[in-house]
Nucleic acid binder design. Structure first.
Length: 271
DNA sequence: CGAGCAACCTGCATGC
DNA sequence: TGCATGCAGGTTGCTC
């Protein structure tokens, strides 16, 4: 479900409700996520205050004085702030109950996400170790992409979706940014010019920023922390539109498989 | 080292 | 209606 804009939407939604709040209790109903929910979470988090909600790539970091809760939403996960009287349904795997009448509920039908507890400095967590720069941060631009793609024969789409290269760009926004930049997704990453990588980096920033502004993309079931959908779907130009007319040239969009992922592009506008 | 792919799991749309 | 199939927003970890 979530790429960077959806995770950032979640972060902004939950932050005001959990920051400075003290955890009363943690309830785990289904520990078998991508990795087992860290068992000590239930014993260690209660009694402590969430100081800050950060994001690194698609990971959410709930920081306390004694450690960090690291959450990933996988393909179908969500975090919502609810009243404690709301009873859980089938895929509501974990609750963090706060003092007062609020709880943070993790739901994830496919269970590709994770909830981990890390008592040590989070910067050294293995899952965060090999992540590339934030696409909306200073370390990311066309020069960076150009420099790191030399001699790479994999497709440029696979390249920008690799979290070791740059975090946060999933299948939706990779398709969109390549269309906006006029680059064929099949092109070898190492054969894209410096000039065109500048355009690509700019379009990546643009599409992510615009999506965050409207609460992300809701395809079937993504909702923000209050249960509302995101509105970027209506702005998508190629994702989910294989066979339909290109919005620039009116020719039909091609749909292919690239690195096991559905890929839509315009053979006329993207070279 | 990089590239390609199977795997994790459930829900939903489609076709017979 | 029922069943089989294929597909979905992500990422790791295996093989070559």
């Amino acid at each position: 479900m979530p790429e960077l804009p959806e995770v950032e939407t979640t972060r902004r939604g939950i932050a005001p409700h959990v920051t400075k709040r003290r955890v009363l209790k943690v309830i785990v109903r289904q520990p078998n996520l991508r990795w087992p929910v860290t068992p000590s979470l239930v014993d260690e988090l209660p009694g402590h205050v969430i100081d800050k909600v950060d994001r690194r790539g698609k990971y959410l970091l709930l920081k306390t004085r004694i450690g960090t809760l690291l959450a990933h939403l996988g393909m179908s996960g969500s975090l919502r702030v609810l009243n404690t009287n709301k009873s859980p349904s089938k895929h509501d795997h974990l609750d963090i109950i706060f003092e007062g009448d609020r709880l943070l509920r993790y739901s994830d039908p496919r269970r590709f996400g994770c909830i981990l507890w890390e008592p040590n400095p989070i910067e050294s967590h293995p899952l965060l170790q090999s992540l590339g720069p934030e696409p909306l941060g200073d370390g990311f631009d066309g020069e960076y992409l150009y420099h790191n793609s030399r001699k790479r024969v994999a497709s440029v789409k696979t390249f920008i979706m690799d979290a070791r290269v740059v975090v946060g760009i999933g299948n939706i926004y990779a398709n969109e940014a390549l269309f906006m930049a006029g680059i064929n997704p099949k092109r070898a990453a190492g054969k894209v010019s410096r000039l065109r990588y500048r355009a690509l980096a700019d379009r990546i920033k643009e599409v992510l920023n615009k999506s965050i502004k409207v609460g992300g993309t809701t395809l079937r079931d993504f909702t923000n922390s209050s249960g509302n959908p995101g509105y970027f779907k209506q702005s998508l130009q190629v994702y989910g539109r294989g066979g339909m007319a290109c919005q620039k040239c009116q020719r039909p969009l091609s749909q292919i498989r690239l690195g096991q992922r559905n890929t839509v592009y315009c053979p006329h506008c993207q070279k």
